[in-house]
């Protein structure tokens, strides 16, 4: 059982959740996730860790309200408790000096990329962050990200800030910004991650994506989180969640993600990208 320190809607439909979980905070690394249950009847849902404070013993995630479990979370407030909160799970992001790294995030990825940006910059990389949203009012954590990267590049679908359009303009934007990344890391929206992987493949840039399949235990027991990477079955919770985006079987992944969509509530409100979840 953990206590909520803060739960706040930071932009429409996107929430910050901070809980007191000192042991998780102590072990958290960039790219890890946690699994929580919002109440005793609830599902186990995974959320990526967006920040942590070892001294205060707190851990934060950014979540998008899409269905029943995230709706329950969105009703909680500071001082409330939730019955389960386990982590940090999954392998951490590979952090090394790669040279120039471009981080690309949409939806909850703006949050989950933050610790990665911080660690990569500390490791001596030139780090750029490209963040995308439907409109400028859906962007968050821009100052935070800007503080730990070389430059923040904004893309909005409606052109209300930065480049107008979508990450499909990637190679054009890279040329305009004069960036030639040695590595790209994409987090957040599945559709966007796939698009990024498609764009970077002809450019020959190694691209890491953080896969978000349906999970139950998150400890390598149930096998539901399997996906095909380079022709082999991998389990996202113990082999990932980060994989080489050029090796992921995206078509199969999308089909599996929809496995329970008929049973789940219709997403209450779709934010961000076209095929967000």
């Amino acid at each position: 059982m953990v206590t909520i320190v803060e739960r706040r809607m930071i932009v429409p439909n996107v929430h910050l959740l901070t809980v007191a979980a000192p042991e998780v905070a102590e072990s958290a690394r960039p790219g890890n996730f946690i699994i929580l249950r919002p109440d005793e009847q609830g599902e186990r849902i995974p959320l990526t860790i967006a920040d942590w404070d070892t001294a205060a013993g707190t851990v934060s995630s950014i979540f998008v309200q899409v269905g029943a479990s995230t709706a329950k979370l969105a009703r909680l407030k500071a001082g409330d408790t939730i019955p389960s909160y386990a982590g940090p799970l999954g392998n951490e992001t590979e952090i090394a000096n790669f040279g120039t790294v471009l981080l690309i995030g949409g939806c909850y990825g703006l949050g989950s990329l933050y610790p990665i940006a911080r660690a990569l910059t500390a490791a001596g990389n030139k780090v750029y962050a490209m963040i995308e949203a439907r409109s400028s009012y859906l962007l968050y954590w821009q100052e935070r990200l800007a503080a730990v990267v070389e430059r923040l590049i904004v893309v909005t679908r409606d052109g209300s800030r930065g480049y107008k359009g979508h990450v499909t303009r990637l190679s054009e934007i890279l040329a305009l910004e004069k960036i030639s990344p040695d590595r790209v890391i994409a987090h957040g929206c599945t559709f966007q991650m796939m698009t990024v992987a498609k764009e970077t493949k002809p450019l020959g840039i190694k691209t890491i994506v953080s896969m978000n399949p349906i999970m139950i235990d998150g400890t390598g027991m149930c096998g539901v989180c399997r996906l095909t990477v380079a022709g082999q079955t991998k389990f996202a919770c113990v082999d990932g969640p980060e994989f080489d985006g050029h090796e992921v079987d995206w078509e199969e992944f999308f089909a599996r993600r929809e496995g329970y969509s008929a049973e789940e509530n219709e997403p209450l409100h779709r934010s961000g990208c076209a095929s967000h979840f």
Partner: peptide
């Protein structure tokens, strides 16, 4: 990796641990 293909662990965990047999009273379908 088609939908509808389960491991026994997933199938039984959904039912037993997550009380899937009591969906929708419990959330795990």
């Amino acid at each position: 990796n088609l939908n509808g293909v389960y491991s026994a662990n997933e199938y039984l965990t959904r039912c037993n641990l997550m009380r899937g047999f009591r969906f929708p009273a419990f959330d795990t379908p």
